[in-house]
Design a protein around this nucleic acid. Structure first.
Lengths: 108, 108
DNA sequence: AAATTGTGCAACCAAATGGTTTTATTATTT
DNA sequence: AAATAATAAAACCATTTGGTTGCACAATTT
């Protein structure tokens, strides 16, 4: 198993999705993310590291605080991939249409 | 760790994304999916089970073959979640705008 | 100066993941 | 009837994951 650090893995975990949504509302420090999360500070910190490696967030030091900011542009890649699949799917229907057309002709 | 079986986990693995893209082009049996995948039949079969549990594909018996079909509707959930995050993000900018407006007023 | 706050690092753990191989069963061809 | 093809089921394995706890350390407050 190669350690994968991509956007798809970033959003695979519900805790990380929760973090992303929290940060979508604005930058927060780690403590603020931990609040009401039901997970320990270290647990959250681990997820943040993953998100950083996936370039989903940026971390900037500010005194003793660490400010987390979301970088939602990465999510475009996900939407792109979904659209690619849908495109193939639609082409598939076109192919089926052609097949049905030809079958019709043969029947006549 | 609770065993999560949702669409986000379904697309987290590159092999599974490959399978979904293959199936987006049309239904296939397991052997056809295995072709050129570089992974054993059993490996693919495992991924298919996960995808089935996530309701990303349907498996139907046809003689001794098992036909796999993609169910792309599930991908809507992913796009929905991305849009939700983006919405929050945009609201955040609105809030910032208001803040800047008020700061301006105070200066005058 | 002392207490508090925000954090990082390391070790640890159980469970899940992503693969493999082997064996057995069923359907189709020949 | 025998050979082949398509699959399922199970056992196994190393690595990753998602969490924990304990300790150390720097920056702020008091």
């Amino acid at each position: 198993m190669i350690e994968r650090r991509d956007i798809f893995q970033a959003i695979a975990d519900p805790t990380r999705r929760m973090i992303i949504q929290k940060l979508s509302g604005g930058a927060l420090n780690i403590g603020q993310i931990v609040e009401d999360s039901g997970i320990s500070r270290q647990g959250i910190a681990k997820h943040l590291r993953v998100l950083q490696q996936c370039e989903m967030i940026t971390l900037t030091q500010k005194g003793r605080e660490q400010i987390c900011e979301a970088r939602l542009e990465q999510l475009d890649k996900v939407v792109e991939w979904v659209n690619e699949s849908r495109k193939l799917w639609n082409q598939r229907l076109v192919k089926l249409d052609r097949f049905l057309e030809e079958t019709k002709k043969q029947k006549i």
